[in-house]
Computed example of a mutant assay.
Amino acid sequence: MYYLSKELFFPPVSEADEEGILAIGGDLGTERLQLAYKSGVFPWFNEGEPILWWSPDPRMVLFLDELIVSKSMRNILNRNIFKVTFNQNFKDVISNCQKIKRDGQNGTWISNEMIDAYCNLHEMGVAKSVEVWQDEVLVGGLYGIDLGHVFCGESMFSKVSNASKVAFIALVEYLRNNNYKLLDCQVYNPHLESLGCCEIDRAAFMSILKNE
């Protein structure tokens, strides 16, 4: 386990333990966060605990052409029930991701400190959001870090059925149209798998991230 100091540094991701934890400590400053994502690392920890930095193996990703849109979902999209915007209400999106109740989870890892840190990145044009509206009300969305060729998804929320899926599909279409290589989804969950995401070796992920 690496303990980070004020120095802007991350050890090689190959040094992560079996769970994927690479380092502990440091801060959530904009420079460190940007270095983390460019290095294949992300923060994930509970409020009140030390900052944990992760680089799991395998890594959950979406190759953009592998997106699965069900027939029922296509019908919803064709009905124009929802309106989608980009980067219009970043703070509201991340705040809703913090507050939304999730099955099997008590509380959230998105602390107020995390919100402040990612809002700072948003002001720099690094953190971005997708908003989904129904009758002028924000009902879903997602946010993440934009590296230019890879988008690192962080969290999404939905207040009505399918709203987060609409955000996800809209993001993938944007990334595909702008020649991104990958959507990073970090760790496995069955919902992401149903949308076409898959696990790949960390080494393969890092090769794409480094444009090798």
Rank of each mutant, 00 (worst) to 15 (best):
M206Y: 15
Y188C: 00
F63Q: 13
V150C: 07
V160W: 06
D27T: 05
N106A: 02
D17F: 04
F42S: 08
A127W: 02
L77I: 01
S207H: 15
F86H: 14
F9L: 04
M114G: 10
F42H: 14
E31H: 12
Y188M: 01
H191K: 01
S164F: 09
E113P: 09
I81V: 10
S164H: 10
I200N: 11
N178W: 09
W53R: 08
N178M: 00
L8I: 08
L52T: 06
Y174E: 09
K101M: 10
E19V: 00
Y143F: 01
V84K: 05
S5D: 14
E31L: 03
M60Q: 13
F157H: 07
A16P: 01
I169W: 03
N80A: 01
E123Q: 13
N177H: 04
K181Y: 12
R202S: 03
L175Q: 05
K91F: 04
G107C: 03
G25H: 13
L183R: 12
V41I: 11
L8V: 08
G125H: 06
C197P: 14
V69D: 14
S55C: 03
P58F: 01
K91A: 01
S111D: 15
E18W: 13
M1A: 11
L64M: 08
A163G: 12
E193Y: 11
P11Q: 02
N80T: 00
A167T: 04
S70Q: 09
G140C: 06
M1S: 13
D135G: 00
V69A: 03
L35Q: 15
L8W: 15
E19P: 10
D92S: 13
S207Q: 15
S72L: 01
Q105Y: 08
L77Q: 14
E173P: 06
I145R: 15
V132E: 11
I169E: 05
V150S: 03
A23F: 11
G125W: 03
N211P: 11
V139D: 14
T30F: 12
L171W: 10
V41Y: 05
V41F: 07
Q186G: 01
N96W: 11
N80H: 14
L28Y: 02
A163R: 04
V126F: 15
V61Q: 14
E193M: 00
S158V: 01
W109R: 06
W54S: 02
P56K: 06
K101W: 15
T30Q: 15
L8Q: 12
N178A: 00
S207F: 10
K181N: 12
C152E: 10
L4T: 04
I24S: 11
K128L: 07
I208D: 15
M124T: 05
G20C: 05
V137P: 15
K101L: 07
C119V: 08
G140K: 06
L52M: 10
N179P: 05
G29R: 13
N96F: 11
K99H: 13
P58C: 01
L195T: 06
I208M: 12
N89H: 14
R74S: 04
M124A: 12
C119S: 11
Q186M: 02
N120I: 00
